[in-house]
Computed example of a mutant assay.
Amino acid sequence: MSSAVTIAISVISLAGTILTAAATGYFQLYAARDASLQQSRALHLKYRQPLLLASHELQSRLYNFCDQGFGRFIHGRRDYVIVHTIYLFAQYFAWLSILRLEIQFLDLDTSNESRRFWDLVEIIRRDFSSDSTNADFKLWSGDQQALGDLMIEHDKSNANQKCCMSYPDFRVKYEDDEKFSRWFKALEDDLERLAHGTTNDTRLRTIQGHFVDLVELLDSVGLMNRQGLRRCRTGTTQAI
């Protein structure tokens, strides 16, 4: 066999090896990305209900505060009216932080529903931190994340599962740990003023409507009573 033929055979063999390796690498990459995407979708499904419940509870409390004069019950029930409302804010941020931590290294789901979810999350984040209204109830993006991160703990029955701190645990820590409660001081002050009708609630009325949208998106199987989803009136800017 001539050297030219030998070289040609070697080149063909090398090219075949390269093509095989490239094809194998491509399919492995495709399989890995597909697995990552499926895991991302599974996590969205896993945290759908905690986020739904947190969003529903918060929108309901904001509606009651802004449109139903819920703040008048502050007398003798400050622990519930103020502290529990702070917890409802933090609970939403906590479950959102947990989802973000879980999916940060995965391919994002680009389905229409997922895009709509993240669009609403971004709208809420932006409205909390926006300068377009007054400073009442303004939470910078970093503070929103911090409030959520502070609430994350590990499930008592499963050390590998992150969850949101329960309200009883939150209340004890809020009352006993000054460094912890300091993070919520601005929100507490705004809620106190809202309860007494001395602050502007425009931001909360807008955000409450976005939470209603989020609940409607997440509640695809009708877990919540849709008749209980009421949007705050527009135009009123003082607490009742």
Rank of each mutant, 00 (worst) to 15 (best):
L139W: 00
I152F: 02
G148P: 03
T133W: 12
N160R: 13
K138Y: 08
T110M: 14
M151K: 00
L106M: 03
D143M: 03
I103T: 15
D119A: 12
N158D: 15
E102V: 03
R116H: 11
K156Y: 10
I124Y: 02
E102Q: 13
N112F: 12
V121S: 05
D136T: 13
N112G: 09
S114I: 07
K162N: 12
P168F: 06
F170W: 01
N134P: 02
S114C: 13
I123W: 05
Q145M: 08
D107E: 12
G148K: 00
S114A: 15
D127W: 08
M151R: 00
N112L: 14
M165E: 06
C163N: 10
F137Y: 04
N160F: 10
R116N: 10
D127Y: 10
D109S: 09
C163T: 15
L147K: 00
I123V: 14
S111T: 15
T110D: 14
E153I: 15
G148Y: 00
Q145H: 09
S129G: 05
P168C: 04
F137C: 02
L101H: 10
V121A: 09
K162A: 11
F128Y: 07
I124T: 01
W118A: 01
I103E: 07
N134Y: 07
R115D: 13
D109T: 06
C164P: 06
D143L: 07
L106Q: 04
M151H: 02
L120D: 02
L106I: 04
D155F: 03
Q145P: 00
N112W: 11
K162S: 12
A135P: 02
I103F: 01
W140D: 10
N158A: 07
D149S: 05
T110Q: 14
M165H: 03
Y167I: 07
A135G: 13
W140M: 07
F128V: 01
I123S: 06
E113Q: 13
W140I: 03
S129P: 02
D169P: 03
A146L: 12
D127I: 02
V121D: 08
R116A: 12
F105Y: 11
A135T: 14
T133Y: 14
D136L: 02
C164E: 05
Q145W: 06
K162L: 15
F170H: 01
Q145C: 04
N112I: 14
N112P: 10
I124M: 04
S132V: 15
K156M: 10
F137I: 06
N160T: 14
N158V: 02
N160L: 12
I103V: 15
L150E: 05
V121K: 03
S166I: 07
S157A: 12
E113F: 08
W118C: 01
V121R: 04
L106R: 00
D169C: 09
E102H: 06
S129M: 02
K156E: 14
D136E: 15
L150M: 11
E122P: 02
D107H: 07
Q145S: 11
Y167W: 12
N112C: 09
A135C: 08
Q144F: 05
A146N: 05
D143E: 11
R125M: 10
T110N: 13
I124W: 00
R115H: 11
S114H: 09
L106P: 00
D136G: 04
A159Q: 11
P168H: 04
Q144G: 01
C164Q: 04
Q144L: 09
F128T: 00
